Computed example of a mutant assay.
Amino acid sequence: MNFSAIINQIIVLFLVLFLGYFIRKRHIIDDHTSKKLSSLIVNVTAPMLILSSMMSKSNLGRDEILGILLLSVMVYICLFLMTFIVPRLLRVEQHNLGVYKFMIMFSNVGFMGFPVVNAIFGREAVFYASIYNLPFYALVYTLGIFFVSSNNKEKTKFEFKKMLNPGICAIIIGLILFSLKWSPHITIKDTVNMIGGLTTPLSMIVIGASLANVNIKNIFSNGRLYIYCVLKLIVFPVAILLAIRNFGFNPIMAGVPVIITGMPVAANAVILSKEFGGNEVLASEGVFISTMLSILTIPLMVYLLSMV
């Protein structure tokens, strides 16, 4: 693992993020544009990146696929248990409990997880990350909605059809192509690769633009968020690394759970809080501070992985 090259790639990602912040502050793009770009990423480019990774990897075994999926389920079970423990330790107010639970369980997978995994391990690792994130896609629109709406007096209507989202569909199609060992025509592959390649720059621009709307003064006064970020960005991924390092996994299979768990708060926290009555201000602050601190913690995780 070329540590200096990886750090350079991560710096590039965050420079693009700061570009997004700048162009939003300068009103080159507005909230409407940012929202449309988010929709484009979630519904088109990120699924294409998943398909691209699955079409380019042909020697991944069934045992590896089942292994990474089982590993993911175990990690999410542990994170779910943490939703009962961490808020008590932090003495979170009752009306903010649901948002904190969401922030504990769900990391920024589509906008940062895939681009960072791609930057660290290469496109092959996006295949692993796609399988690993199956529980995320299934849970974020079910359990995630339950969390953010848990303190909302109005009865929330859950839309389980949202579980069948573009990310899940891309993984299913990719697995079918993989299992059939069918390789699409080069024209199709190049098209999918090109569209999927838009995910990384667009994602970082959208994150930067969304952070431009956060009231930074309020964030600096919320000490509880900083403690949470230490747990989310350092303690949890390091605990996972220590737990799996002696199981004989290959570097990518061991690294993907660590990197994904150590990602900042999922951008869905803000979107779902707005829609289902959660504390969207707290969610925005959580996304902002965790994203900013991840500039330091992601290289730390990469360094720890390189030492294993």
Rank of each mutant, 00 (worst) to 15 (best):
F136W: 12
T191W: 00
G110E: 07
M112T: 08
F146Y: 11
I188E: 06
F121V: 03
S107P: 12
N193L: 03
M194N: 09
N193F: 02
I120F: 07
T142W: 05
T187S: 15
F102N: 14
P166Y: 07
M112H: 05
T156H: 01
A119S: 14
I131H: 01
C169N: 03
L164H: 03
N133C: 13
M112A: 09
S179E: 13
P184K: 00
G110A: 10
L139Y: 12
I176V: 15
Y141I: 02
T187F: 13
L177T: 03
F127V: 02
Y132C: 11
K189V: 10
F158E: 12
K189E: 14
S179T: 08
N152K: 04
L180K: 08
N193A: 07
S107D: 06
K157T: 11
I104H: 10
I120E: 12
I171Q: 07
M105I: 01
I172Q: 04
T191Q: 00
V192A: 11
F147A: 06
V116C: 04
I131C: 09
H185I: 04
K161G: 15
S130G: 14
W182P: 10
S179D: 13
S179C: 04
K101C: 09
F114T: 11
Y141W: 05
T156R: 01
I145M: 04
N118W: 06
I168G: 03
F127Q: 08
K189T: 12
I104D: 07
V109C: 13
K155V: 13
I172G: 03
I195N: 05
F160K: 05
S107L: 00
V117T: 12
P135Q: 01
N152V: 04
I173N: 12
N133L: 12
W182M: 12
F147M: 14
L180R: 05
N151G: 15
F106A: 09
I171A: 05
P135I: 00
I188D: 05
F102S: 12
E154D: 15
Y137E: 15
I168Y: 03
G167P: 13
I186R: 06
P115G: 01
P115Y: 00
N165K: 05
F127R: 00
S179L: 03
T142D: 09
G167M: 00
A119Y: 01
F147H: 11
P135N: 00
N151D: 15
C169M: 14
T191R: 00
V126F: 04
L177D: 12
N118A: 01
L139R: 13
P184Q: 03
Y137Q: 15
A138L: 14
M112G: 07
I195F: 05
M194V: 05
I172F: 06
V126Q: 11
F106C: 11
